[in-house]
Amino acid sequence: MTFSLVARCADTGMFGIAISSSSPAVAARCSYARAGVGAVASQNVTDPTLGPLTLDLMGSGLSAPDAIAEVQKRGAFIEYRQVLAVDAEGRTAIHSGPNSLGIWTQAEGPDVASGGNLLANEGVPAAIVAGFTEAEGHIGDRLLAAMRAGLAAGGEAGPVHSAGLKIVDRVAWPVADLRCDWTEDCPIETVADAWKVYKPQIDAYVQRAVDPREAPSYGVPGDD
């Protein structure tokens, strides 16, 4: 019931994940990323423990392929799961269990991996990878371009209702974590609208956390 991608920006070292589903609040259960380590999507009959496990394995020094191989050994009911990973070197790996739902498939490229289930057709992940690879600019812009490409290629077999965009950089928390947990409209475009507002403020929010003495004004009434 989901399509997603995990990606690394080779220029900045940022990691990101974008995801959409017909299920509610997909990003709350399926999106994981850690600065300096990588990004992971854990989806299809979701086991939320697999995201942190994969990040811990990559954080201990395993490559994305080796981490996914270890997850295949450790994961409960792994035949029902899809797990996508990209590591700090841009290496990617995907596990798609044989009991994944409906039409399911996957695709990989330099610094990016995509997978989905209950898809409209088998070409959706390849379109997502191409969308990310061909896009330019901030990783957030590229992630959204990829999701739009996947939607244009058919997306999920039915309408999607939730989506999310998560980006990590040099600090211990996500520098962007935008979600649409439910809408009858397009959740990807809802997240894209939020990104337009949030993107210019990312550095300011990080600065306020690191050293508020050097932070820009808040731009709200009463802030002199």
Rank of each mutant, 00 (worst) to 15 (best):
T2Y: 10
F3H: 12
F3K: 09
L5S: 03
A7G: 07
R8Q: 08
C9N: 14
D11Y: 01
G13T: 10
M14R: 15
F15T: 02
G16P: 01
A18V: 15
I19T: 15
I19A: 00
I19R: 01
S21K: 08
P24E: 07
P24A: 13
A25L: 06
A25F: 04
V26P: 05
C30W: 04
S31E: 15
S31I: 14
Y32F: 15
A33H: 12
R34A: 15
G36S: 04
V37E: 03
V37A: 04
G38L: 04
A39G: 06
A39M: 08
A39H: 09
V40G: 00
A41V: 15
A41E: 14
A41M: 12
Q43L: 08
T46E: 06
D47P: 12
L50W: 12
G51Y: 13
L53V: 07
L53F: 01
L53K: 06
T54H: 00
L55F: 11
L55H: 07
D56F: 01
D56S: 09
G59Q: 12
S60F: 01
S60M: 10
G61L: 03
L62C: 02
S63L: 07
S63A: 13
A64I: 13
A64Y: 08
P65C: 13
A67K: 11
A67H: 14
I68W: 08
I68Y: 03
A69C: 04
E70C: 01
V71G: 00
V71A: 08
Q72K: 08
Q72S: 10
R74S: 06
G75Q: 02
F77I: 10
I78C: 05
E79R: 11
Y80I: 03
Y80N: 12
V83Y: 06
L84K: 02
L84S: 02
A85L: 07
A85T: 10
V86C: 04
V86W: 11
V86K: 02
V86Q: 06
E89K: 13
E89D: 14
E89N: 13
E89M: 08
G90N: 04
R91H: 13
R91E: 14
T92L: 03
A93Y: 09
G97Y: 11
G97P: 09
G97H: 03
P98T: 09
P98A: 11
N99S: 10
N99V: 00
N99E: 15
N99T: 03
S100Q: 01
S100A: 15
G102T: 11
G102A: 10
G102C: 08
G102W: 07
W104C: 12
T105N: 15
A107W: 09
A107T: 05
E108M: 13
G109P: 05
P110F: 05
D111F: 11
V112W: 08
G116I: 01
G116A: 04
G116P: 01
L118Y: 09
L119Q: 03
E122Q: 12
G123L: 04
G123R: 07
V124F: 01
P125F: 11
A127D: 01
V129Q: 07
A130W: 00
A130E: 14
F132Y: 15
T133S: 15
T133C: 03
